[in-house]
Design a protein around this nucleic acid. Structure first.
Length: 921
RNA sequence: AGGCGUGUAGCUCAGUGGGAGAGCACUACCCUGACACGGUAGUGGUCAAGAGUUCAAAUCUCUUCACGCCUACCA
């Protein structure tokens, strides 16, 4: 009678109190040859969502395991980076959920200031509208409207991937609660003097019409020109200055030369005439000037160059704005006023040439700053902006990483992190946009006082005037994302979620936003919460195309994850991403590889098909929880073996996931599933299942079902859909596979004896198959191998499994022969007497080719034997190498020698067949 | 300029002190009753180059070469 398997024999049942779930009927026929992912994925996902298994409950027991998703842009569509990010997070979340941890995965989206504003502006342009026409209020209303219509894309797309987020906790960076968090942080940092407003040189995008922070400027190498301009002086002849931006000369306030530069000693204290304007500026010396670059003289334009700005400060020089916010020349440029900077440059060069003020032009390769959003050349500009004083915050963040409160994985990123944190500059947080968190600062029209407050003040605290105007700027979008780990949990309210789930456990993201996001979350988390916002940061590679090129629309090499999923299925896609998520910096996504894992999904599906049909044949599925057998331990060798191996693999999977080695986890399961579970276990189980012994068949069937279930559980975090679909057929009514448990190695299941015996069966089988293959026999001819059984145990093993071996080998009979060498075989392959097998094969083989092949093998073996024996003849090795290493080498040497002997015997046989081949050497 | 990283089979990549591995591709044979999206057996490598440390180096150290990325105020 089948009975319930005792817990000790199976893998632990679910702990905790995850809600049981009921599911809709399975639709596809269990006997379909392929998994119909297109049908199953949406159905399964809907079932999961309804079941409530994604939802976190702070009152449940269990250690918290919390991830906040890196919020994608609300206007965005799922790209490869998101897909990788979400896959890795989902693997961790599902693994920990199955383990019984109290898991929470917070999803959400980012309002993405510039990006979103640009997108909506483009859409309006298509309607013939522009933002200025609409006015701020109407424009912002349109953006919200846009968000309502299109903002759900990415969230739906994450569902297609199988992401098990807690959608009841979905957040948006401009939600009321999160906006409140933003104001709260801004005001308290201002009160502490960590936020200030000031007139400094900043990076200005003339297309987006806004300031951008230093890290939002990307540098592109460009071939440009270096122009040598003559600045006339009184009596001393012209002073030649090299510049790449001649149009900024209208903003020049000085010419600087290096300290103690003998070439220019006479010029110091004199004045130079700015070309085309006739304006006189002082000639000064400053340490910044590199005497070896250009002419060793530098024009100083404090309003339009960060270095010149610093020089201007040092020397108390003024500033002249030569360019406006659209990149057009100002009134300072006289006749050039109103011209675009690049147009003006061309025209000026003509005039300079005509007037003999252009000494020469040299080609120059240099880096040009461009806007990371629209790639327009950035114009440094003096402007009044809000800044976060970053150094003290960064110092805390760096300390937290140095003392291990937050760990970066892989740790090599720590150096990069410190490098930046130790050299951090103040963060310009104001943006001249309409879409975003408006800065909570008000200016009194009466007395000019600035009021920074959580809510709009009714009147000026100084003059009581009511004419207060709020700052028109909004905050950098990264300001609100920096608060994400706690703002999403309800802060500044003291919520139950915040208490239970903060700090979060792991942050998973690409290394490209370490500075933009990770560092700033650390700074804000430490400042605001007094704790690091996450314990571990997992930095994954960046996804590239199959050639390793960055994906971009202009290159046309963008691979759409949705398309890949619709062709190959979400499971295959996820598995491909995770299997390649090693410690490298690039992840090359190639659909061929995804296709390979789709085959793997098919392999799993068919293994299940086999098991399910065997269960059905046995008269109603006993279910994986039921198995006959004694004392809950498997009796048959294949079952003992697979239980032992499953336990070991479960342990390795756990270790891989705990260490964030997603690639190892995937590789492990791919190899085990295909080459052990399918190729060997199922094959070894077949004769038992189809055999005469009904009790044995029932027993193996139970273990087969149980083991398949455990395998599915191991695979589930990476391949949620197919594993769930099979699980429901395998254990109807048992609830979702995602409720766990995740298999773990149990001491009672390790069975080294069974593993050794199965290895031996495998070696023997392989040896015979090799004979068959080497001689090109095909499956037709029946063989009668003779095995040299050199010890009683092996003999008994072979005798007890003779039918199995005959089946595997395709042999008619299997004979055991004694051996007089007395050496115990350590590799069963070596006990086959090939000569006995081959002798009757005369006429079926090509002796010449066979002799050549065997000679090559003999050569290789001799080389390996030479290496191993010289090692064993080395006194240093024997003295210093660990004992197990030495004995391993001895065993290997013996095995190699056995093999060589067999190959030589074989050569003798081949020689005998050919009549003149190489003799038995 | 500085920092980081990479270089292992045709391709994509694991492997961090003791037998050079995986997937794909390739070759041969096989539609064996889960799967031809399959099975079996194979081919293929001076682990970029050189030197050093060690009984022992793909692995540790140094140098060189090639490539990539990041940071940076050479106008």
């Amino acid at each position: 009678m089948p009975r319930l398997l005792p817990a000790a024999a199976g893998l632990r049942e679910a702990r905790g109190s995850l809600p049981g779930a009921t599911f809709a009927m399975c639709h596809s026929d269990p006997l379909d040859k392929n998994f119909d992912f297109a049908e199953a994925e949406p159905r399964l996902y809907a079932g999961w969502e309804e079941s409530g298994l994604f939802r976190a409950d702070p009152e449940r027991p269990g250690p918290p395991f919390v991830i906040v998703i890196p919020p994608p842009n609300v206007t965005g569509n799922l790209h490869m980076g998101h897909a990788l990010d979400a896959t890795l997070q989902d693997i961790l979340i599902r693994y920990h959920r199955m383990r019984g941890d109290n898991t929470l995965w917070v999803p959400g989206t980012d309002h993405a200031g510039i990006a979103t504003q640009n997108v909506v502006e483009r859409a309006l342009a298509a309607e013939g509208l522009d933002r200025e026409e609409l006015g701020r209020e109407e424009f912002v209303r349109r953006v919200w409207e846009w968000k309502a219509t299109y903002g759900g894309n990415i969230v739906r797309q994450l569902r297609r991937l199988g992401a098990s987020c807690d959608w009841s906790r979905e957040r948006f960076t401009m939600d009321e609660g999160l906006s409140q968090a933003v104001r709260e942080v801004f005001v308290s940092l201002y009160d502490e003097g960590l936020i200030y407003r000031g007139q400094y040189i900043i990076n200005w995008c003339p297309r987006c019409h806004t300031a951008v922070s230093d890290i939002e400027v990307e540098h592109e190498d460009r071939r440009d020109s270096l122009y040598y301009l003559r600045y006339e002086t009184e009596g001393l002849g012209p002073l030649v200055v090299a510049t790449t931006r001649p149009e900024t000369c209208f903003g020049d306030v000085a010419v600087a030369v290096g300290p103690n530069d003998p070439r220019y000693a006479a010029y110091l204290g004199r004045e130079a005439r700015v070309p085309l304007t006739g304006r006189l500026v002082p000639i000064i010396e400053d340490a910044h000037v590199d005497p070896d670059f250009g002419t060793g003289a530098l024009k100083v334009t404090p309003a339009h160059d960060p270095n010149d700005f610093a020089i201007g400060q040092r020397h108390g020089l003024g500033q002249i704005l030569a360019l406006d916010e659209s990149g057009l020349l100002t009134g300072a440029a006289g006749p050039y006023e109103g011209l675009d900077r690049f147009v003006a440059r061309e025209r000026m060069l003509g005039e300079l040439g005509e007037r003999g003020l252009l000494e020469k032009v040299e080609p120059l390769e240099h880096a040009v700053g461009v806007c990371y959003r629209c790639r327009t050349v950035i114009e440094p500009l003096v402007s009044r902006q809000w800044f976060v004083r970053a150094a003290p915050l960064a110092a805390e963040a760096a300390r937290a990483v140095r003392d291990g409160r937050t760990r970066l994985v892989p740790a090599t990123w720590e150096k990069t992190f410190f490098e930046w944190m130790d050299n951090i500059r103040d963060w310009c947080v104001s943006r001249q946009l309409w879409w975003g968190h408006q800065i909570p600062a008000w200016y009194c029209g009466g007395c000019g006082r600035t009021v920074v407050a959580r809510e709009a003040p009714a009147a000026c605290p100084d003059c009581r005037g009511t004419g207060l105007d709020q700052d028109q700027d909004v905050l950098d979008t990264w300001f609100s994302s920096a608060l994400w780990p706690f703002s999403t949990l309800g802060w500044p309210e003291r919520t139950r979620d915040l208490e239970r789930y903060f700090p979060t456990t792991v942050l998973v993201t690409g290394f490209d936003i370490i500075f933009f996001w990770v560092a700033r979350m650390m700074m804000m988390g430490l400042k605001t919460m007094g704790r690091v916002p996450f314990g571990t940061v997992v930095l994954h590679p960046l996804v590239r195309d199959a050639q390793g090129q960055k994906m971009s629309k202009s290159k046309g090499n963008v691979v759409d994850p949705l398309e890949v999923m619709s062709r190959q299925g979400a499971d295959a896609f996820r598995f491909a991403l995770a299997a390649q998520a090693g410690q490298a910096r690039d992840l090359k996504i190639d659909e061929q590889r995804v296709r390979g894992y789709a085959k793997f999904v098919n392999k799993i599906w068919n293994a299940a098909r086999f098991a399910l049909s065997a269960l059905a044949e046995a008269g109603g599925a006993p279910g994986a929880g039921e198995a006959p057998g004694d004392g809950g331990r498997p009796a048959a060798l294949p079952d003992r073996w697979i239980r032992s191996r499953l336990g070991a693999v479960a342990g390795e999977c756990r270790a891989a996931l705990e260490g964030f080695h997603f690639d190892r986890y995937c590789d492990l399961l791919y190899q085990f599933t295909w080459y052990e579970f399918c190729d060997w276990y199922l094959e070894l189980a077949k004769p038992i299942l189809h055999g005469q012994d009904a009790g044995a068949a029932r027993g193996t069937l139970g273990w087969l079902a149980l083991s398949l279930g455990d395998l599915l559980r191991l695979l589930h975090p990476a391949m949620p859909f197919v594993t769930e679909e099979i699980w429901r057929r395998l254990r109807p009514g048992a609830g979702s596979i995602m409720a766990g448990p995740f298999p773990e190695p149990l001491a009672g299941e390790a069975d080294p004896e069974a593993e050794r015996q199965v290895r031996c069966l495998m070696d023997l089988t392989r040896a015979v198959r090799q004979v068959r293959s080497d001689f090109g026999l095909g499956p037709g001819p029946r063989l009668s191998p003779v095995v040299l059984a050199r010890d009683g145990e092996i003999g008994r093993l072979l005798e007890s499994h003779a039918p199995l071996l005959l089946r595997l080998m395709g042999a008619d009979s299997l004979r055991l022969a004694g051996d007089d060498s007395g050496r115990p075989p350590d590799s069963a392959a070596n006990v086959l007497d090939w000569g006995q097998v081959w002798t009757p094969l005369q006429g079926l083989i090509d002796p010449g080719a066979e002799a050549a092949r065997l000679s090559r093998e003999a050569e290789r073996l001799a080389k390996d034997i030479g290496a191993a024996s010289s090692k064993l003849g080395n006194p240093g090795y024997l003295a210093k190498a660990p004992e197990d290493v030495v004995s391993e080498t001895r065993e290997r040497l013996a095995a190699l020698e056995d093999r060589l002997a067999a190959v030589r015997r074989a050569l003798g046989v081949v020689g005998a067949i050919s009549g003149n081949g190489p003799g038995a050497a």
